[in-house]
């Protein structure tokens, strides 16, 4: 397939396919989660669980004391990566246009050179985190295939986007097509790996806060 053909497929049927699998997977996970449910708590509630639940969703964004000293790379790398990934995704003008074509509305973007620098920092951070995963014996012991897959499908859109932006690799049309395809791969993989945390982190935090809050305990 030539560059232009690949790009057209990625922007057309490829996206339809990827979005379909993504939504299918999300629904399967969420509905199963909801149906599994929780055991009814027969004790008397000391407080309504919703408020504490919601508060914990926000409060858990601040890590526990001593985290920086205990695991500085994970602490800083985690923040930098997530911040960088989200900002390059949401505030680069071509991305905003893509989202506008789906959502129907857009928002102002950041200057491209800022996105460029942030993208590079994010890529470097991801590589550093992977290196730590390899070199630290405990982390390596704990790492499974799912972790490597999740890292790779997250890394590829960043790398291919940076390469396309800077006209690296082969011709631009093909690089752009590869970038869009890498994003489609990410979409397909998300619901079936730990990358679901992008949605479930809110549920998990809420749940922790809610069950404790119901008992009158603040976490």
């Amino acid at each position: 397939m030539s560059g232009p053909e690949l790009l057209l497929w990625a922007r057309g049927p490829g996206l339809q396919f990827a979005v379909a699998i993504f939504l299918f997977g999300l629904l399967v996970r969420f509905v199963e989660l909801w149906l599994l449910g929780r055991k009814t708590d027969l004790s008397e509630a000391r407080a309504h669980p919703m408020g504490p639940g919601l508060r914990t969703v926000l409060s858990r964004s601040v890590p526990m004391p001593g985290a920086l000293k205990h695991a500085p790379l994970v602490f800083l790398g985690g923040y930098i990566f997530h911040f960088g990934f989200l900002v390059t995704l949401l505030f680069y003008v071509p991305h905003i246009h893509f989202l506008r074509s789906i959502l129907g509305f857009g928002w102002p973007g950041l200057p491209p050179f800022l996105i460029d620098v942030l993208g590079l920092v994010t890529i470097a951070t991801l590589i550093a985190l992977l290196v730590q995963r390899f070199t630290d014996p405990v982390r390596r012991f704990l790492t499974r295939t799912d972790d490597y897959v999740a890292w790779t499908v997250t890394f590829l859109p960043l790398l291919s986007g940076y390469a396309a932006f800077h006209r690296l690799g082969t011709d631009y049309t093909t690089m752009l097509a590869l970038h869009i395809l890498s994003v489609e791969l990410l979409l397909i993989v998300i619901p079936f790996t730990k990358l679901m945390h992008m949605f479930t982190f809110m549920l998990a935090r809420w749940y922790n806060g809610a069950i404790a809050g119901r008992k009158g305990v603040r976490v």
Partner: peptide, 22 residues
Amino acid sequence: STKTLPLSAHAGAALAIGATVG
């Protein structure tokens, strides 16, 4: 950077099938 084909039909079907399978 925008999509070239509509997504709503595929999305709708995916949500319905996903809900059922879920």
